[in-house]
Every structure is written in C-alpha cells, then in structure tokens.
Design a protein around this nucleic acid. Structure first.
Lengths: 196, 196
DNA sequence: TAGCACATGTAACTCGTTACATGATTTG
DNA sequence: CAAATCATGTAACGAGTTACATGTGCTA
C-alpha cells in the first residue's frame, strides 16, 4: 500500500499542524497549491487511506453539516515515512507545459496575435511575481530567525517561496525576450513597406 | 469532439513534416518531450481520433511487422485548428513539482542528507543546461536566418529552447542558493561549538 | 431570505502509465 | 542467432477533474 504523492502533500501539511479535510483542501489552493494541487474529492478518500495505513489519526470536533467534522493529526509513523520520502530523489518529472506547447506552434499564428498572447502571459508572470514578493516581505520581516534554521518548517516554506520568485522572474524575462524577437518582425517579403 | 492537448502536440509535430506513429512517439521523448510527453499507447488511439475528426490523413507505406505502417499528414483543417488553439491563452496550469513538494518537508530531513539531495538536483539541472547549450550552438550556427523569422518552425523551436536554457539556469542557481542556506547550518542549540 | 463559508462524501469520466501482444528487418 | 530497432495495437489500472449530493451557521 504505497502512499501516493498527494498523500505526502497532505502529510507535509499535517506535519505543521492538525487540520480538517476542508482546511487541507484550502491549503492545496494556496501554500502548497503553488507546486501541487488537488480538489476535495481527492483529499477525503486520500485521508481515509492515510488513516488506514496508520499515518494519520482523526478526532471528531463540533461543526456544521450532516456529517462529523474531523480534525486530522499526523502520527509518528506518518512523520517518519514523510521524512524518508522527502530525503529520496524525486523521479524525473514528466514536463507538461501547455503554454510552451502553444509556443511550439506559434509560427502558424499571425505575429500580431502572437504578441497579444505573450503580453498576457508576461502580465500573468509579473502579477504572480509581485504576489510572491509581497509574501516574501511579510515572512522576512516576521520570521527572520527561523528562516535561517533548516530544521524549521518556516525554512522549507521560504525555500519554496524563493523558488517561486526565481521561476516567475525567469519566465517574465523570457516573455520579454520573445516579445522583442516578435517585434523585430522582419517579414522579408514586405521589407519595402516596413518603417525600420 | 474537442481535441485534447496531446492531439495538439501531435498536430504541432505533423505541421512540420509527415511522420508515422512510431516517429511521433520518439518525438514525444526528445524535442516536444521537454514540455509535453506521451507513450505510444496514447499516441496511436489519439491519431485515430484526429483522423476521424479530419485533422490528419494517412497513407500506407512499406514497413516491417504484422500491421500496416502508416505515414500521417496534417490536413488544412488540422493546420487551422492548431493555429487557432495556439493563439488562445493556455488554461492556468496546475503545477505538479514533486521535488518542490519534498523541499516543503525538507525541514524534517537531517541537513547532511538534505545537502546530498540538493547537490544531485543541481547536477541534474547543470547537465540539462549543458545539453540545451549544445543544441543552441548547433541551431545558432546552422539556422541563423530562419531563427529571426517568427513564421518559421525554427523560430518556434528556438523560442522553446531559450525557455529551457533560462529555466535550467534559474533552477540550478536556486539549488546553489539552497545549498548555501543549508551549509550555514546555524543549529542554535550548538552555537557555543560553532566557528562563527 | 438569499448567498456564502464551512464541511464531507460519492459517481462518472478523462488522461496517463504500465503491461500484454505480435512480428519483420537490421546489426553485431 | 541474439538483440536492438522499427512498427502498431489493446487492456488494466491509477490519478485527477467535474458533477452530484447534503446540510448548518453566519452575514448582508
């Protein structure tokens, strides 16, 4: 009964603090959602599997709705397999970038439309970069000490944040380069009509 | 009968030149494989769907084995939907980076083992970077003219290559930063023993 | 009182991976 | 002659998305 990657994502969250399935689903949008995602329909069955394997436990707390509200806690065994999994090299990821796939066929698109597409993508990267920069300012001012200690969860979170910052910068800059390459727009056949 | 992303990957390859299902499967490892991948068991059924939709045609050519060898060619309709798809913004991709997920739980790993993990990752990025640099040198010396014209397939391929170069550099540099952060290794409890 | 946040589940479907299956041609 | 390459398919399974289903408590 091997734990799935999603299981390790959930354990990674529960290793920081106990949460409900609902909380975990929310967390799969924002902190962890930057590098792994899942919907609630995946989370609840996965929690059941983790509990069957002895990696988490739950206690019933008061809450709304027709069913029990369950707060999940990681077990010692859960913490242990999580640490073991984290220390082993990740399997080479199969890249899936739909945007790059579009770029691969961009030569079929009129340069004007292509520029529109890239501008939108650049804006998206810029916005995400600013979002990360905001978070970075906050954690850097509030948790300076813990960010330096690699045995704190804050260190790990900060490391992933730095990666996000770096990624968005490189992606934005590449869009910038591509816009420049599209703007040059030599179109040899019409060179007599072009202004520059 | 909406064409899947894999379908557009295959059309993107066929828009450059006709190929067999086998050729396409190989291409899903190397040129396109850098940002999209698929195994032959996905490729063959997808080709049948594309043909049913009128986006590709095949002709039987001589070849080995118990079944016909088919060479697929993109149709005018196929070229058209491919260009339309490429011009429209990509749906925000759900990030799935198992390595970053491990980093998120790296605080549970002994710093010595953590450094080992990051060093291996850095080496992988460095190797991939050098591979891309080799390809870049080749295409830059052989196809300088076409690389400047955004209506050539060479331009599109080169744009994705530049993205690969930029990505690997940023990823390697981030590993470098993380190694530095792990090497500092303050371990406050032992501060009396530490040199700094 | 309408809508949203909280809270948990199942079902149907699509996408992707791994394994099963066959067989000719070329190269060592 | 053994192994790799060329070449095409199907089947079983797992992972992920979307839709279905239910119901409370708070706020506008």
């Amino acid at each position: 009964m091997a734990t799935s990657t999603l299981g390790f994502a959930l354990l990674g969250l529960l290793a920081r603090k106990p949460r409900t399935g609902y909380d975990l689903t929310q967390a799969m949008r924002q902190p962890i959602g930057y590098f792994w995602s899942a919907s609630h329909s995946q989370v609840y069955p996965e929690l059941a599997k983790l509990e069957a394997a002895g990696y988490v436990n739950h206690s019933v707390i008061d809450g709304p709705g027709p069913r029990d509200t369950k707060r999940y806690t990681i077990s010692a065994a859960g913490r242990h397999i999580l640490a073991e999994w984290a220390a082993k090299p990740a399997a080479p990821a199969t890249a899936r970038d739909e945007f790059l796939l579009k770029i691969y066929s961009l030569w079929l698109v009129e340069p004007a439309r292509a520029r529109e597409l890239i501008r939108a993508q650049r804006a998206a990267h810029q916005a995400q970069l600013e979002h990360y920069e905001q978070i970075a300012r906050e954690v850097e001012s509030e948790q300076i000490d813990r960010l330096r200690d690699p045995t704190t969860p804050e260190f790990s979170s900060y490391a992933t944040l730095r990666r996000g910052l770096s990624f968005e910068r490189h992606a934005r800059d590449w869009c910038e380069w591509l816009l420049g390459a599209l703007a040059a727009d030599p179109e040899p056949a019409r060179s007599a009509d072009s202004p520059g």
